[in-house]
Design a protein around this nucleic acid. Structure first.
Lengths: 328, 328
DNA sequence: TTGTACGCGTTATCAC
DNA sequence: GTGATAACGCGTACAA
């Protein structure tokens, strides 16, 4: 493989001049420039990006942490982030934490090695105090999941509000026994806050809240099915369910119909996210602006990298939207 | 940030010895090793991976090209690949081509810069002849999409067979007017071959084939809806449809039911992939072993990187499975 | 406008 | 066992 020296030799110039052409510096005469470009072409020269990274101490690469890609919420988030990154000349390193504390920490090591310019976390398996020390090695942006004690840029939604909106809608429809099921396990603030919103709405309406009406361990279609049977066998059956994702809602409805339930007459269901599946199932849902969320987070990251100053800790809060369809 | 020299100084040893400890070389006495480890700890030393990459001429990073992540087929593929990669100590660079020739070629540049050890293509927007020259810069593995003229490792399915199996099933159910719609546009071999399988099955059964019964431009839920209306307004309405993905099938069924069709009585539908949505909709489908596909491709890549010899061009062909549910 | 010389941080080679 | 020293390939003061 040809190096910059080979090009210089061939063009009869110094490496410096070649480098100047590559990096589009001013003060290179037109004819020398032509010479260099000619030589580069002939030798099929391409700059070695590892050498560039070492020299420049910057990699034009950003890592994105997600639990898993088969969760459509996260795959959509990553899709958008990659688009924004490319536009700005950055690349994306994909890291799946698998909802696993250790896996998240393992991946944290890569920030240390100067292999990336920054890190976007879309979920947190470890408390912020575990993550914070890594700030020493580079900028971190929080997206979706959040922790108010973190002094870093955050793009997120007020999940208390999200939980409230969904629950309030069910209450307005006349329901009194409402089950809540959140989408994510672990220490994520998202599910905690959303549940808080549920509780807030219930209390405001003077409705009863019981531990056996709250679940926080299901986030897939299969999980929705399991959830149905748990409810199905309860003695005080709820008339409405607020799920933490459209997938759970879809699985739940599917199983409910199979068991002779009419939706929403016998059981009202509301989802979360507004994935394509929501429209398909006629699902009422609390829409999250996933694209805007991903775009905002990536922009916050890139701004921080370009300005080189860490710790402005801007927080962007995006709005929910209630999409009413046929399941409530 | 501390460098290897800092560590050496602190431990009162040479950089060489420190490097030996880092890379677990033999011939380092226990006490010196302790000394080095102590110094590394005190200085919070972490090797600069860009320097390592430059020196070792290898990056432990693999790029994966997909059209878009919101297509669940591809997000599942990437999810699996990342898992296998991590197990083997590799990282994943994610590249979305957006079904776009130019975007694919743009991304090709990164292979040149020695930034990655290899490249996995899950779809091809350009003919193989455009891609082949890049083999000069590093190994390429084909996954899902394929081209028999490419002398590189390939993990794929025989899509002619896939098209045949699905169509044959519809024929066996007594259908004679069968519409075919493929999942991907462009020059992808996948959709071409699958259509060939459809034609083969139809001809074997002496059934008519008409251009207006073949579509090849839809691959989303929305696309499925559009497809329905095209068919709905045809004069010779088909009694069965073979779609290239479960999403298209789901959109189609949704819209058909809305317009008073009974499925499968008025219109039989078969999907492709066996995504979660397929079970949800009770969809008969041709299952692709996506996990095995991704795992195999990644293993082929890593084998090639580790053995350092390019061009063994092994081809792994995985089997389909017909999943019969309620839509046929 | 161009070239010289050094440094980015690491590892491989060789000599001791 | 251990340590100089030379790459790896590039960018940039500084001098000219």
């Amino acid at each position: 493989m040809a190096t910059i020296s080979d090009v210089a030799k061939r063009a009869g110039l110094s490496r410096t001049t070649v480098s100047r052409v590559i990096n589009q510096h001013p003060y290179v005469s037109e004819d020398k420039k032509k010479l260099v470009e000619q030589a580069m072409l002939e030798l099929k020269y391409v700059p070695n990006s590892n050498a560039q990274k070492l020299r420049k101490q910057s990699t034009e690469t950003i890592a994105v942490y997600v639990p898993r890609l088969t969760n459509p919420f996260f795959s959509q988030l990553v899709e958008t982030m990659e688009e924004v990154a490319v536009e700005e000349g950055f690349q994306l390193l994909l890291c799946q934490t698998r909802y696993n504390k250790q896996q998240e920490l393992n991946y944290m090591q890569i920030l240390k090695g100067k292999q990336i310019d920054g890190l976007i976390l879309t979920s947190m398996e470890n408390p912020w105090s575990e993550i914070e020390p890594y700030l020493l090695y580079g900028p971190i942006v929080l997206c979706n999941d959040y922790d108010y004690s973190a002094r870093v840029p955050i793009a997120h939604l007020d999940q208390v509000m999200g939980g409230y909106i969904g629950t309030k809608h069910l209450i307005d429809r006349g329901h009194e026994v409402i089950v809540y099921c959140s989408s994510e396990p672990g220490i994520s603030r998202v599910s905690k806050d959303r549940q808080e919103g549920y509780i807030k709405a219930m209390q405001q309406a003077n409705l009863k809240i019981r531990p056996e009406w709250m679940f926080s361990d299901q986030f897939t279609v299969e999980g929705g099915k399991r959830l149905f049977y748990r409810i199905h066998h309860q003695k005080d059956r709820p008339t409405a369910i607020f799920t933490g994702s459209d997938e759970v809602a879809a699985g739940l409805i599917h199983e409910a119909r199979k068991n002779g339930y009419r939706v929403p007459e016998d059981l009202a269901v509301i989802g979360f996210d507004d994935q394509p599946i929501a429209e398909l199932m006629g699902l009422t849902t609390v829409k999250q602006p996933i694209d805007r969320l991903g775009k905002t987070a990536m922009e916050l990251m890139i701004q921080q990298i370009k300005s080189k100053k860490m710790g402005d800790a801007r927080r962007v809060e995006l709005p929910f939207e209630l999409i009413i369809r046929e399941t409530t």
